[in-house]
Design a protein around this nucleic acid. Structure first.
Length: 489
RNA sequence: GCCGCCUUAGCUCAGUUGGUUAGAGCGCCAGAUUGUGGCUCUGGAGGUCCUCAGUUCGAACCUGAGAGGUGGUACCA
């Protein structure tokens, strides 16, 4: 070699990306299968679209030509067009629906799951690549379409394994706050946005913090100042009264909201929508503790046009250190009536919901609802002598043919290391086929599960090895039933 | 994006008022135990002390910049 040291890259994951091993993948796949089944049972068809979209199809948010990678991961194709990795599953759906609108059955109902990517600062529980599972109805303006999406989300939470009471859907409608602001004379778009942002912080800052943000602004503990919406005191109090109207049954909440916002045309339309959602939910068998109206729910700022919903974990869970974790939102959605119109010029009403699959899986784990067992390894065929490899593979093949996961040890270490390997893989058993067994036409099978349970009581290695717990030598023909008995426990 | 804190072995962390070969526990590898996982004992491997620049006779330690992480805040399709 040369004097210059070889370049050695750091073996590390890219920032905000993560590796997922068997245990996580299994939980995730189970989750996707169960939620997909719920969606299909409601008549939604599967759809998969590409990871990349042309950047202009992704939405008005970003990227712009000066900063193509702000928010998304974008590359310039060789025909000078910007392509970007999708940041959610809704924008690709809008593109797909617009592209095939003429031939689709309408309303078009589809579900989709897969990774999405966001080029932004990662944090704990917040990655730049994550899995979403999404269901949308495109082409129906009926509030019942919203109600059905909500009911499916509720069913999805339960199918995922979250017991009733562990999670709930909170529902709001943009029209309500719009109507309220209209009635109080707030019309500037910027001011409306600022009000939404302030309301969104209710759970963190409380009514007093929100009151400051609705008015002149708020200085936080670090001394940073956030400019407020600049509302008059009376208007601010009306907003606060509105966001405090949650609690109790859906119809109780509706009555309270009506008392606060009554008057404007848009507000009344929002109330009418919610009343119909309530009626449909009741018909769908969704109870008041599973889905409730919550006026402080905001979601995205410019995207949603009517109903908005958010799935929240209600349990207080503890992390490994015993500290309290609040998961908050594990999914959300709402009505977006302008998305497809970006492509076609024709308004198409749509509504949908998206689970954050990784967050849901993490929440399930923390709630102790997920099967957190480690993944079992295969039956391991021990290699005594390289000359007998064909025999070992034959044995592994017999096990596989019987539906038992099996592998021949492919390292070069000795017996002890092979046992350790099987133990670490959490294998149920090892098959030993040394010269003695081959000569006698037998196999030796060792039940590792039994050994694992007995090991705790054994004091010295001498005894442990002499006892050879769960080990039996028997004719080749009796191998499969013996292993099957071990697998059954 | 802005503000604070942190960064020493695979992991969790000690350490040094700036001074020769940087430590522990756990984990990993091997032996005691030629065909047997745990326990015990013995031995071993593993470090650009985050990076770069500066101060100094001398920097893992002091200073500055940067990167990564983390907490808060802002934004969030």
């Amino acid at each position: 070699m040369t004097d210059t040291p070889a370049f050695r890259p750091d073996a590390r994951s890219p920032r905000g990306f993560q590796d997922r091993r068997a245990r996580d993948l299994r939980a995730e796949r189970t989750l996707l299968a169960r939620v997909s089944a719920v969606y299909e049972a409601h008549g939604f068809e599967a759809l998969d679209t590409s990871a990349f979209e042309y950047a202009d199809a992704l939405g008005k948010f970003l990227p712009d030509s000066d900063r193509p990678n702000a928010g998304v991961f974008a590359v310039l194709d060789d025909d000078e067009q910007w392509m970007a990795l999708r940041y959610d599953l809704t924008a690709p759906l809008a593109r797909f629906a617009a592209q095939h609108w003429e031939t689709l059955p309408k309303p078009f109902r589809r579900y989709a799951f897969g990774p999405v990517w966001r080029n932004e600062k990662p944090g704990p529980g917040r990655f730049r690549e994550f899995i979403q599972c999404d269901a949308d109805t495109v082409g129906s303006a009926r509030p019942e379409a919203d109600a059905e999406i909500i009911a499916m989300a509720v069913a999805g939470l339960e199918a995922a394994g979250l017991a009733r009471g562990a999670a709930a859907l909170k529902i709001n409608n943009r029209k309500l706050l719009n109507g309220l602001l209209e009635a109080t004379g707030v019309t500037a778009a910027g001011q409306k946005l600022a009000v939404l942002r302030a309301v969104d912080k209710l759970d963190r800052l409380g009514p007093d913090g929100v009151r400051l943000l609705l008015g002149e602004g708020r200085k936080d503990e670090s001394g940073a100042f956030t400019k407020g919406a600049g509302l008059q005191a009376a208007a601010a109090e009306a907003v606060l009264q509105f966001v405090a109207a949650g609690g109790g049954s859906r119809s109780e909440t509706l009555d309270r909201i009506a008392g606060v916002i009554g008057g404007s045309a848009e507000g009344d339309a929002g109330l009418e929508d919610l009343a119909r959602i309530d009626a449909a939910l009741t018909g769908l068998g969704v109870a008041d503790d599973q889905a409730m109206f919550e006026p402080s729910i905001v979601r995205g700022l410019e995207y949603y046009t009517g109903a908005v919903f958010e799935a929240e974990i209600l349990l207080d869970t503890l992390d490994e250190r015993g500290e309290r974790v609040r998961f908050g939102s594990i999914g959300g959605g709402g009505r977006y009536d302008d998305l497809v119109a970006r492509f076609t010029g024709e308004p198409v009403p749509a509504t949908g919901f998206s689970f954050g699959v990784s967050r849901l899986a993490a929440a399930l784990r923390a709630a102790g609802q997920a099967a957190a067992d480690a993944v079992r390894g295969p039956v391991v065929v021990i290699v005594f002598d390289g000359a007998h490899m064909p025999q070992y593979f034959q044995v592994a093949g017999e096990l596989r043919a019987a539906g038992i996961a099996a592998e021949v040890y492919l390292g070069t270490s000795g017996m002890k290391a092979q046992m350790k390997y099987a133990d670490r893989r959490l294998s149920p058993a090892v098959i030993m086929l040394g010269g003695d067994e081959i000569a006698a036409g037998t196999v030796t099978i060792k039940d590792l599960d039994l050994g694992r349970s007995l090991a705790a009581g054994v004091q010295d290695n001498e005894t442990w090895r002499a006892a050879r717990p769960g080990q039996a030598t028997l004719p080749r023909g009796e191998m499969i039933p013996f292993v099957q008995r071990i697998l059954k426990g």
